[in-house]
């Protein structure tokens, strides 16, 4: 799930080098923290969170295949 998040984020931002994804796992729950440059926040969140929500939808498909639950947080640098 981390590679999927990284790929999408790097493809959408102006500063791909500053994309950082951390994965935390507690049992079957996975939390992904996506950090991007400050001026790229809007590009990975989108209007009304549309981009982040689309990413969550795709992450859910990947997670369900492994019997996991996933949460994605976009965090400030």
């Amino acid at each position: 799930m981390k590679p999927l998040t990284e790929y999408i984020a790097r493809s959408l931002v102006e500063h791909p080098d500053e994309v950082d994804v951390r994965e935390y796992r507690h049992g079957s729950r996975v939390t992904l923290e996506l950090q991007v440059a400050k001026d790229d926040m809007g590009r990975v969140i989108g209007k009304n969170g549309r981009v982040a929500n689309a990413m969550r939808t795709l992450l859910r498909v990947a997670a369900e295949r492994e019997g996991l639950q996933v949460a994605l947080d976009v965090v400030e640098p």
Partner: peptide, 25 residues
């Protein structure tokens, strides 16, 4: 069918992300 989802929710999310990535590129 896992790629379609309820009311094509997953397919639409995939399509949205693809449009963003390719348009950006």
């Amino acid at each position: 069918s896992i790629l379609i989802g309820r009311r094509a929710e997953i397919l639409n999310a995939l399509q949205y992300i693809v449009n963003l990535i390719v348009s950006k590129q």
